[in-house]
Simulated assay, not measured.
Amino acid sequence: MEIKVTLTDHPKQKPDENNLGFGHIFTDHMFLMDYDDGQGWHDPRVVPYGPIPMDPACSCLHYAQEVFEGMKAYRTADGKIQFFRPGQNFKRLNTSCERLVIPKMDEELLMEGLKRLVTIEKDWVPSAPDTSLYIRPFIVATQAVLGVHPSAHYVYCVILSPSGAYYAGGIDPVKIYVETKYVRAASQGGMGAYKTGGNYAASLIAQEEAERQGYSQVLWLDAVERKYVEEVGSMNVFFKIDGEIVTPELDGSILPGITRKSVIQLLRSWGMNVSERKLSIDELESAAKAGKLEEAWGTGTAAVISPIGELKCGDTVTVINEGRIGEISQKLYDTITDIQWGRIPDPFGWITPCC
């Protein structure tokens, strides 16, 4: 399909690259595409950034039929722009669509649309150290009807936001609160493995309690036995226990993170022992008491690697690696970000050039 382009008549002033923050500033244009029953996905276009017309009875507003993704574009030292594993994001988007009964999309067309949009907005990709262009593709159900069934109409949209360095003052390990009362997602057959807004809405009450107690993130446990580690807020999680690196297995309740997948591949390429298995909070606390819990970190698009310095479960507080970033966490962060910004070669084929 031909991608039509309509450029804005009122371009915005570019922001100060040293004061970008995250998710507050948006570029001049966005990508849109529509779906209608009997016609399929159609009318791909780049248009000026602005409101999406939406009826008050739209399905997404009442029954939460929507999915989204998150990825980044990076400017290299020679001024080129590249993506980190965008094909994996579009593949996961289609997996989420299948679960939410949203019509799947042509992943090649999604990539073409992304490249066209970012090429038009290339001057918005910041060049200050460790800055990037955050990319948010999403799909919302737009049929105007009050009825619990899949929508007959959808809008696919991609918006862009220049983002500042996640660790502007250096990497500080985070303090994690273990949630034992609330559940983020059902263990199997639920929505935990899919990137949909309901999962994040379900996490807000625990996040508020964590912050009240002085903790920045929530570690979720399984929904059935309330003892097995699942994921941290918007990140997957890893623990180094007596030389073994453990991350919870993908059992249907955990988002299959692309950074998670990259970390596992990278660690195994270094010859390290990585296990994807069930991991209980009791095992973690016992390992810590025995001096065998050596390191912990979260993985995700925003932070890449977020070292964990402390866990609080009930009245038990566990300090990890004296609250400092560990050797593996640092090496992972340095290696992945060096690949993302083109500072070292990419031996895995993770980088997709844009413009």
Score class of each variant (00 low, 15 high):
residue 72 K to Q: 00
residue 156 Y to T: 14
residue 226 R to L: 00
residue 174 V to M: 06
residue 80 K to V: 01
residue 88 Q to N: 15
residue 262 S to I: 04
residue 284 L to Q: 10
residue 43 D to C: 00
residue 305 I to C: 06
residue 96 S to F: 02
residue 163 S to P: 00
residue 236 N to R: 02
residue 231 E to Y: 10
residue 286 S to H: 15
residue 218 V to H: 06
residue 13 Q to S: 13
residue 157 C to H: 03
residue 131 T to Y: 05
residue 28 D to A: 05
residue 73 A to P: 00
residue 245 I to P: 01
residue 340 Q to Y: 12
residue 177 Y to L: 08
residue 202 A to Q: 04
residue 54 M to E: 14
residue 86 P to W: 10
residue 54 M to Y: 09
residue 18 N to D: 11
residue 9 D to W: 11
residue 334 D to P: 09
residue 157 C to F: 08
residue 226 R to F: 11
residue 55 D to V: 09
residue 148 V to A: 08
residue 235 M to Y: 05
residue 328 I to C: 01
residue 9 D to S: 13
residue 47 V to R: 12
residue 229 V to E: 06
residue 334 D to C: 09
residue 69 E to Y: 03
residue 66 E to S: 15
residue 208 E to Q: 15
residue 169 G to M: 10
residue 323 G to F: 04
residue 60 C to I: 15
residue 177 Y to H: 09
residue 148 V to T: 01
residue 81 I to V: 08
residue 54 M to A: 14
residue 225 E to W: 13
residue 121 E to G: 07
residue 325 I to H: 14
residue 214 G to W: 11
residue 327 E to I: 08
residue 24 H to G: 14
residue 52 I to Y: 14
residue 105 M to Q: 03
residue 210 A to K: 05
residue 150 P to G: 12
residue 301 T to R: 07
residue 17 E to R: 15
residue 164 G to S: 09
residue 281 I to P: 05
residue 58 C to K: 13
residue 31 F to G: 10
residue 205 I to N: 11
residue 106 D to T: 04
residue 27 T to C: 12
residue 336 I to G: 06
residue 225 E to V: 12
residue 257 G to D: 00
residue 284 L to E: 03
residue 148 V to Q: 11
residue 11 P to E: 06
residue 97 C to K: 10
residue 296 A to K: 01
residue 115 K to T: 07
residue 258 I to W: 00
residue 201 A to T: 14
residue 263 V to I: 07
